[in-house]
Design a protein around this nucleic acid. Sequence first.
DNA 1: CGCCCCATGTAAGACGTTACATGATTGA
DNA 2: TCAATCATGTAACGTCTTACATGGGGCG
Lengths: 195, 195
Amino acid sequence: MSGQAISKLGYALLGLLQARPASGYDLRKIFSTTAMTSYSDSPGAIYPALRRLRQQGLIRGSIEHGAGLRRRQVFTLTTEGAAELKSWITRPVTRAEVIRGVDEVMLRFAFSEQAAGREASVGLLKSLKAELTLYLPNLHQQRADGKATMPTSGSLALESGIRGYETLLQWTKDALATFARQPYASRQKKKGAKS
Amino acid sequence: MSGQAISKLGYALLGLLQARPASGYDLRKIFSTTAMTSYSDSPGAIYPALRRLRQQGLIRGSIEHGAGLRRRQVFTLTTEGAAELKSWITRPVTRAEVIRGVDEVMLRFAFSEQAAGREASVGLLKSLKAELTLYLPNLHQQRADGKATMPTSGSLALESGIRGYETLLQWTKDALATFARQPYASRQKKKGAKS
DNA sequence: CGCCCCATGTAAGACGTTACATGATTGA
DNA sequence: TCAATCATGTAACGTCTTACATGGGGCG
């Protein structure tokens, strides 16, 4: 399958297109107006990214002429695209990901329910929880080690990071509880339809 | 003057060199072993970055031959480098910075005390606190708006972001209290150190 | 008519990643 | 002597940023 690496922006696009077909312009507006403002809404990033995804066979574009507007290309996930998205979502959370910043993990989680089903969401949460539980003692150790040598602002900065991870760990527990509370009534259908 | 933009890695290097002179290799080790592991320790990033800083006159390198080791270039901040670092640190915190992820703000804060004095640390904290206080209601609004349309995992992801910012806001308050508790002194001296 | 919004795209440049290259010194 | 570690660097490549380009449609 597409051996090429896909950028974070690429996965964000796949995830959004999985929710509903959209044009490049629509996607830009999502990035610029919703909580996903951390992703670039610049055309110089999005249009090339869409082209790459299309060349990899992960999305398909169809040109609309409706309503006399300018040509407008609406993209949809292919079955391969859906599979790639699912594989990305269900990857276990690694230490490197946690260190680099959890935003990619959160992106995966945000799409997980619709794209890979509730079990995938729960799996991701468990994986994140496990990794955080292993990583936090490490940070506490560093705080203890550096206490003598670091200036006040330096150790406070470290403290901020620790608190952030602790909050995140608590959140994973609460989120797991949320899923446990909900009976799995609204079960997403997970098997790809034939096209 | 150095009108050129400086990357986050560049500022991280300036901040570390402000604390003590170091070689490229030393800096790589700091990135790969301490809590600053979120920055790249690859030579392909660090050596070019150091060269750019040198070309901009922000650091100066001197070659050491001591102890029969291979040539080793130790870098130091110039006065211009120190000024640039200070100007970066004392910039007010913007909304864009908060959205993009607070790691650059935390980097500024971590260096603030040594590089720009305690007043700068307090200033940064106040600026961050103000920006967070303005931004959080915005996120709460988005959560309320999206409650109906978002899947469980999506709204939980947003919830995680909100909690993260709330934790950060609480941290700024605690950090300000920490500075307020400590008697004013331009230089931080640990109680063990003699003056 | 002029201006702004929709909608798509390209071009130049900067930066980071990965992989490779080089060479000296230390220790098994 | 051979491997590992110290120490510095380059080259190819991909991606993002910024800025610019294009063109139709609605509106005052």
